[in-house]
C-alpha cells in the first residue's frame, strides 16, 4: 500500500514539474521568439528606451539563462522571500508566485483570496450533482423504459444542453429578482458569515450541479443497468437478500466505482475553470482571477493560477487513485 501511494505521489510530482516547465516556457520564453522582451508584460506598452528595457531585464532576471530563470521561479515558490514590488521590495512568504504589477499585490495573496471562493462553489456543487445524478440515474436504471426513466433521462438531456450562462441568469431571475428569496449576491467567507456565504453560493451550486448531475445521471443509469445484469447480483438475490440490499450493497457499490474516477477528475478540473459561473454570479474565484489576468496580460497571475489549478487536478487524481485501491480490491496494491 505504501509503495502504491509513494508511486502515485512520485507521478504527481512529475506531472506538476512538467506543467510548470510548459507554462513557464510558454509565457516566459514565448515572447523571446516573437522578438519582444518579457519585460513588456510588466511595463505594458509604455515607450521605453533600449537601455531602460535592458536595465529592467537585468532587474527581473530576464537576462539570465532560461534554466536559471526557471529555477529562480520555482525556488521562489518555495520560499525566496523577497520580490520586487512597484517601488519597493516586498516580503513574499511561501508560496511565492511573484508580484502582480497590474494589481499591485502579491500573486499568492490574490490566489489565496480566490481559492476559498472557488472551493466553496465546487465542493457544494459536487456534492449536489453526485447525490442528485446518482439518485436520478439509479431510479431510471431500476425501472428502465418506464415514465420515471424517460422523465429522468429527458431531464438529464435538457440539463446537459443548457449552458450555465442560461441557467445562471434564469436562477437569478427567479430566486433573487422574482421571488426575492435570496439577496443580490455578495460573497462572504464561511467563517465570517455562514448565512451570507450560503446565500451567495447556493445558486452557483445549483447552476453548476444541474449541468454535471445530468452527466452523472446518464453514467449511473448505464453502469447500474449493466451491473444489475451481472451474475453476482443473481447470486445476491439467490441468497435471499432483500431488494434494497441487493441494489445498494451489491449493485450501486459496483456501479459507482467507475464514477468515482470521473468525479475526481471533474472536481479537479473545475478548480480554476468555473469562469462562467463566477462571472454570472459575481464571485471572485480563481476563474475570474485568471480571466482578468489573461485580458490584462498579467503574467505572474496566469503562471500562479495555472500551477494551482494543475495542483488541484493532480491532488484530486491522487485521492481518487488511493481511494480506488480501497474500493476495488483487484487494483494491485
Amino acid at each position: 500500500m505504501i509503495r502504491f501511494i509513494l508511486g502515485r505521489f512520485a507521478g504527481m510530482i512529475l506531472v506538476l514539474f512538467i506543467v510548470s516547465v510548459v507554462t513557464f516556457g510558454i509565457f516566459q520564453i514565448g515572447p523571446i521568439f516573437a522578438n519582444a522582451s518579457p519585460v513588456f508584460y510588466y511595463i505594458g506598452k509604455a515607450p521605453a528606451t533600449p537601455q531602460l528595457v535592458a536595465a529592467l531585464e537585468h532587474r527581473y532576471g530576464f537576462d539570465q539563462p532560461i534554466p536559471v530563470q526557471y529555477f529562480n521561479f520555482i525556488g521562489g515558490i518555495f520560499g525566496k522571500s523577497i520580490t520586487d514590488g512597484v517601488s519597493q521590495t516586498v516580503q513574499c512568504p511561501f508560496p511565492c508566485f511573484g508580484y502582480s504589477f497590474r494589481q499591485n499585490e502579491l500573486v499568492s495573496v490574490l490566489i489565496g483570496r480566490a481559492i476559498p471562493v472557488s472551493v466553496s462553489i465546487i465542493v457544494g456543487a459536487a456534492v449536489l450533482w453526485l447525490v442528485g445524478g446518482v439518485a436520478v440515474g439509479t431510479a431510471s436504471a431500476l425501472r428502465p423504459g418506464t415514465f420515471i426513466d424517460r422523465a429522468g433521462m429527458t431531464g438529464a438531456l435538457a440539463a446537459v444542453s443548457l449552458p450555465i450562462f442560461f441557467t445562471g441568469p434564469v436562477l437569478l431571475l427567479i430566486f433573487v429578482y422574482g421571488l426575492g428569496w435570496l439577496p443580490t449576491i455578495q460573497y462572504a467567507s464561511l467563517l465570517d458569515d455562514p448565512l451570507r456565504w450560503l446565500q451567495s453560493v447556493i445558486l452557483p451550486w445549483i447552476a453548476l450541479a444541474f449541468l454535471f448531475a445530468a452527466l452523472y445521471a446518464r453514467l449511473t443509469r448505464s453502469n447500474m443497468l449493466e451491473t444489475m445484469g451481472e451474475d453476482y447480483i443473481r447470486t445476491a438475490r439467490a441468497k435471499g437478500l432483500d431488494r434494497r440490499t441487493v441494489i445498494v450493497k451489491h449493485g450501486l457499490r459496483a456501479a459507482l466505482t467507475p464514477i468515482v474516477t470521473i468525479f475526481g477528475i471533474d472536481v479537479g478540473t473545475l478548480i480554476g475553470t468555473t469562469v462562467i459561473t463566477e462571472s454570472v454570479f459575481n464571485l471572485r474565484g480563481l476563474g475570474y482571477l485568471s480571466i482578468q489576468a489573461v485580458t490584462q496580460q498579467d503574467l505572474p497571475i496566469i503562471l500562479g493560477v495555472t500551477i494551482v489549478a494543475a495542483l488541484g487536478l493532480v491532488i484530486a487524481n491522487f485521492v481518487v487513485d488511493v481511494l480506488y485501491a480501497f474500493i476495488d480490491p483487484r487494483v494491485a496494491v
Binding site: 451481472e230 451474475d231 453476482y232 447470486t235 439467490a238 457499490r253 459496483a254 480490491p329
Partner: peptide, 12 residues
C-alpha cells in the same frame, strides 16, 4: 450454485 463462480461472486 451457479455456472461461473468468478462472475457469480461480487468482486469487491
Amino acid at each position: 450454485i451457479f455456472q461461473d463462480p468468478l462472475s457469480s461472486l461480487h468482486p469487491f
